[in-house]
Simulated assay, not measured.
Amino acid sequence: MVSKNVLIALCLMIIGCKGVSQEKESPGDEPKSFAVTKTEEEWKKELTEAEFYVLRKAATENPFTSELLENKEKGTYVCAGCGTPLFRSETKYRSGTGWPSFYQEIEGNVAYDVDYKIGYKRTEEHCATCGGHLGHVFDDGPKPTGLRHCINGVALDFIPDTSD
């Protein structure tokens, strides 16, 4: 009789325990706050449909479709969402991937996160000011950094240098 009661009590304890190991947030899961924050509706009003889906929904534009891919002018590539300067034309290079690529960001203006969306770890890049998704950075770029910032052109606007 005692063993039956112990067995029932043990079963109730097991069933009653709520496993939370999968619910714990990792250190990178805290909600991030950005200097520029807007509602989804505000973003939709200000951005084109393509800009909205890339910057706010982390979509990827089709390769070889960006008007900025072959841009060779001197200037600054800024976030299409908030205008934050992200890359200089001097660091842009032809990677052959179909997306504008840079070997160096403007320090402090690009933030990074880990992305497992396609089944393996990648380093996602986003604007440090508004959180807009830009693309990903890879370790197969040219010298001097060895990095390839593979950026969705639709996430960028280009500001040409002015001659003085």
Results as ranks from 00 to 15, higher is better:
residue 86 L to C: 03
residue 140 D to S: 13
residue 123 T to A: 04
residue 111 A to T: 14
residue 131 G to C: 06
residue 109 N to L: 04
residue 101 S to A: 13
residue 111 A to D: 14
residue 86 L to S: 03
residue 86 L to D: 08
residue 86 L to E: 03
residue 132 G to E: 08
residue 124 E to T: 08
residue 105 E to G: 00
residue 97 T to I: 06
residue 125 E to N: 11
residue 121 K to Y: 00
residue 85 P to T: 01
residue 120 Y to G: 00
residue 144 P to D: 03
residue 115 D to K: 02
residue 143 K to G: 14
residue 123 T to W: 00
residue 92 K to D: 13
residue 81 G to D: 04
residue 95 S to V: 04
residue 142 P to N: 06
residue 112 Y to S: 04
residue 125 E to A: 08
residue 141 G to C: 05
residue 91 T to P: 04
residue 134 L to A: 08
residue 87 F to M: 11
residue 142 P to I: 12
residue 95 S to G: 08
residue 92 K to G: 04
residue 122 R to C: 13
residue 117 K to E: 14
residue 114 V to Y: 09
residue 126 H to K: 15
residue 90 E to Y: 00
residue 86 L to P: 03
residue 125 E to R: 01
residue 107 E to Y: 02
residue 80 A to S: 12
residue 85 P to K: 13
residue 102 F to R: 02
residue 97 T to H: 05
residue 106 I to P: 05
residue 135 G to C: 03
residue 106 I to R: 02
residue 91 T to H: 14
residue 125 E to W: 00
residue 121 K to Q: 13
residue 124 E to F: 01
residue 131 G to R: 03
residue 136 H to I: 10
residue 87 F to E: 08
residue 127 C to L: 07
residue 104 Q to P: 03
residue 140 D to R: 13
residue 102 F to Q: 05
residue 142 P to E: 05
residue 88 R to Q: 13
residue 80 A to I: 07
residue 84 T to V: 05
residue 137 V to Y: 04
residue 109 N to D: 02
residue 118 I to S: 14
residue 97 T to E: 05
residue 139 D to Q: 10
residue 102 F to V: 06
residue 106 I to L: 12
residue 140 D to W: 01
residue 97 T to A: 09
residue 138 F to C: 12
residue 87 F to I: 06
residue 120 Y to R: 07
residue 123 T to Y: 01
residue 138 F to P: 15
residue 135 G to T: 09
residue 84 T to D: 06
residue 81 G to R: 10
residue 128 A to I: 04
residue 99 W to M: 08
